[in-house]
Nucleic acid binder design. Structure first.
Lengths: 349, 349
DNA sequence: TTGTACGCGTTATCAG
DNA sequence: CTGATAACGCGTACAA
C-alpha cells in the first residue's frame, strides 16, 4: 500500500508531458510508436493505473448504473442482477447493487448517495409501488432530475418513469386456464397481496380470470401472505382450516415458487397428495422447481430478458428522455407434475 | 437531467465561500447557525448534492470495498453478499459486487478496475484457489500493493493475504460421525472436487475422517462433480451404476445442498427411499432444506459470520497490514429427516 | 507528433 | 466563525 503513483510521476520519468501519458493509456493513435513503448514501459514498471475518480470528475459521469432491489435472497432477484450486470458490462458500464427494503420508503440517504455518485441511471425492481411506501413519487422524480430511471414493475402513470413489466395477464391466465382445462373448478391463490403494491396486480388478474371462466371467486379462495416459503406453509394451513372439507379448493396457485415450496410441504403434511388431492402451480420457474417432489409446474416470467431490456432502455434514455411502458416477452407455463397434467390426471367434479 | 449545480453556485447564491458550504454539508460545528440556515436553504432550493468523485479525488479513497464472487446464483453466495453488505454499510462503506468466473484466471481488467477505482479493500469468496487459476498469486499481490485483501478460503500460505476460513474439519467430521453413530458403514461423498482448488479440502477431510473411524475409503465412494443440482443427479447415477448392489453406500454426503437436491431426486427416481435405503446429508443449510422431502439434514458453515468478520478484518487491515488465518466459528450439523436420526432410524449392517 | 495550461468539484490549510 | 487558495489526478482544447 504505497504512495499512489500519478500521471505526473510517469510523465516525468518518461520525459514526456502528461498529455502523452493519457494518449498512451487511452490508446490514442497520435503517438509515435517509439514514444508509446517507452511510456508504456514506465507505466508497467511503476504499475501505474489512472484514477477513476479523477476521470469521472473530468467527464462528469461515472459509467455506473445502480440496481435497487428490495432483497437478494429470493433467487428471482439474483437472476435479475446477473442479467442486468452482464448487459451493463457489455455496454461498458458497471452495475452497483443496492438494497432498499420492501414496504418502506426509499431512504433519503439512498437517493442522495445515487445522486452524489453521479450515476448514469437507476434500475428499480421488485414491488416498488407498495402503498406504504410514502414519498415514492417524490424520490423518483428527484432522481429523474439527475438520471434516467427505469422500473421493472406494472405500468403506472404515477411513477412517471420507464416501466418494463412482466406479462401480468398471462401470468395469471396461464395457470388458471390450465387448471380449468384439467377439470379444476375450485382454484385458490395464495401469497403476495391483493391490496398493496405491484404484487396486487397478480391477484387481481387471477380474480378476473376466474370470473371470465365463470368460476367461483370466493373471497376465501385468495389469501394474502408474504413472499417466502414459510408464508406458503402458513397460508395453506389458514386456507384449509378455514373451510369445510367439501369446499376445499382442488388446486392452488402460489404467488411465487418460494410460497409454493412452503405450500407443498404443508399440503403433504396434512396428508393430501399432490397433484391428486391438490394441484399446485408456482411462479418464476426457479432452479429448484425440477427438484421438488413432485416437480413444480411454474410460470416463467423471463426476468433475465426484462433486466436486459431495462438496462438497454436506461442507456438509450440518456438521450431521449421519456416515460413509457413496455412488455418484453409473454410469460409461459412450464408444465411439470405438480399440476397433474403430465400424469394425464383429470379432475372429476 | 439539468446542468449539475456545484458548490460554486451555492456559495455565490448564499454569499459565502465554498469552504463554508462544505462546512455546512459536512456538519462542521464551526458555522454560525444563522449562516448555516441560510446556506442550507439555498442547498435545498437548488437540490445541491456534492459530487462523490470530487470528494474521492480529494481524499484519495472511495469508501468502497469490493466483493469478488465466482457467481451469485448459489444462495450461499447471496448470504455472503448480504452480510458483507450490511457490515460495510454499518461502517460507512459501500460494497461493490463483482463476479469473476470460477476456474478461470482473474481477468487483468478486473484487478485494473479495482485499482483504478481506488477501492479500500477487496474481499474474495468462493473457490479462489483453484489450480487452473493461473496467475492468482500475481493478481493478489498486485492488488495487495494497493489495498488490503481478504479471502474467505482455506488457509493457504501461498495466497499471502488474510484468510477467513470455514470450519473445514467439522464440516467433514460432523456428518461422517453422525452417520457412523447411526450405524452406517459405507458412506460416499459426491460433488466438488478432490483434486482441485479450495473445495478439495472438504473431500480430503472426508477421507481422513473415514480412515479415523476405520471405515472403507473405497475410491469408488467419492465422486467429483460440479456444484449444482444437475451435478448431484448425475453423480448419484454414476456412483450407483458403477457398483454392484451389495456394495452400494448406505449414506451419501453431498458437497453442498444444491448437489444434495439433485441427489435426492435421483435417489428417489431409482426407487430408493430416503433415509431408509439411503441417508443423505448436505451442506450450507440453505433456505430450501426444511422444504425438501424428506427435509434435508445439512451442515451450517455460518457464511454470514464469516463475511461479517471478513469485512471487519478488511477495515482493520487498512492500518495493520499482515497476512493471517482465522476461523470464525465452528460449523454445526442441522439434523432434519434425510439422515434418519429424527426417525430413530438405525442402520443394521 | 507533442506540450502547455486550464477546468472538473471538493476538501483542507492557513490566515484573518 | 469565515474566506482565499492550493491541492487532488486526470482529460482536453489549443498551440506549437
Amino acid at each position: 500500500m504505497n504512495r499512489k503513483v500519478t500521471i505526473y510521476d510517469i510523465a516525468r520519468e518518461a520525459g514526456v508531458s502528461t498529455a502523452t501519458v493519457t494518449r498512451v493509456t487511452s490508446n490514442d493513435p497520435r503517438v509515435k510508436s517509439s514514444t508509446r513503448e517507452r511510456v508504456q514501459r514506465i507505466i508497467d514498471a511503476y504499475a501505474y493505473t489512472p484514477s477513476a475518480s479523477a476521470r469521472d470528475l473530468e467527464r462528469g459521469q461515472s459509467k455506473t448504473i445502480a440496481l435497487v432491489l428490495p432483497q437478494i435472497i429470493n433467487p428471482y432477484f439474483t437472476r435479475i442482477f446477473n442479467s442486468a450486470n452482464e448487459e451493463a458490462i457489455a455496454n461498458g458500464y458497471s452495475l452497483w447493487l443496492v438494497q432498499s427494503p420492501d414496504h418502506k420508503p426509499i431512504p433519503r440517504t439512498l437517493t442522495e448517495e445515487l445522486i452524489r455518485r453521479r450515476l448514469d441511471g437507476v434500475l428499480f425492481a421488485g414491488n416498488i409501488w407498495s402503498t406504504d411506501r410514502s414519498g415514492l413519487s417524490e424520490a423518483l422524480s428527484r432522481l429523474r432530475h439527475h438520471m434516467p430511471v427505469v422500473a421493472i414493475c406494472p405500468p403506472n402513470a404515477k411513477l412517471d418513469c420507464i416501466c418494463i413489466h412482466s406479462d401480468l395477464v398471462g401470468c395469471a391466465r396461464l395457470p388458471v386456464r390450465h387448471l380449468h382445462t384439467l377439470g379444476h373448478r375450485r382454484i385458490a391463490f395464495i401469497g403476495g397481496s391483493l391490496l398493496e403494491g405491484d404484487s396486487s396486480q397478480r391477484g387481481q388478474n387471477f380474480l378476473e380470470e376466474l370470473r371470465a371462466l365463470g368460476l367461483p371467486d370466493d373471497p376465501a379462495y385468495h389469501l394474502d401472505c408474504g413472499y417466502d416459503a414459510e408464508s406458503g406453509e402458513r397460508a395453506v394451513l389458514r386456507l384449509l382450516s378455514g373451510l369445510e372439507r367439501k369446499r376445499w379448493p382442488t388446486a392452488l396457485i402460489a404467488f411465487n415458487d418460494l410460497v409454493a415450496l412452503g405450500a407443498l410441504k404443508q399440503i403433504k403434511q396434512m396428508g393430501l397428495r399432490v397433484p391428486d388431492d391438490m394441484a399446485l402451480i408456482g411462479c418464476d420457474n426457479q432452479f429448484f422447481c425440477p427438484y421438488t417432489d413432485p416437480p413444480l409446474t411454474s410460470v416463467d416470467l423471463y426476468p433475465e430478458e426484462m433486466a436486459r431490456s431495462a438496462v438497454r432502455e436506461l442507456l438509450i434514455a440518456r438521450e431521449n428522455n421519456a416515460s413509457s411502458f413496455s412488455l418484453v416477452r409473454e410469460s409461459s407455463l412450464i408444465v411439470r407434475e405438480s399440476c397433474g397434467a403430465k400424469l394425464g390426471y383429470r379432475k372429476l367434479e
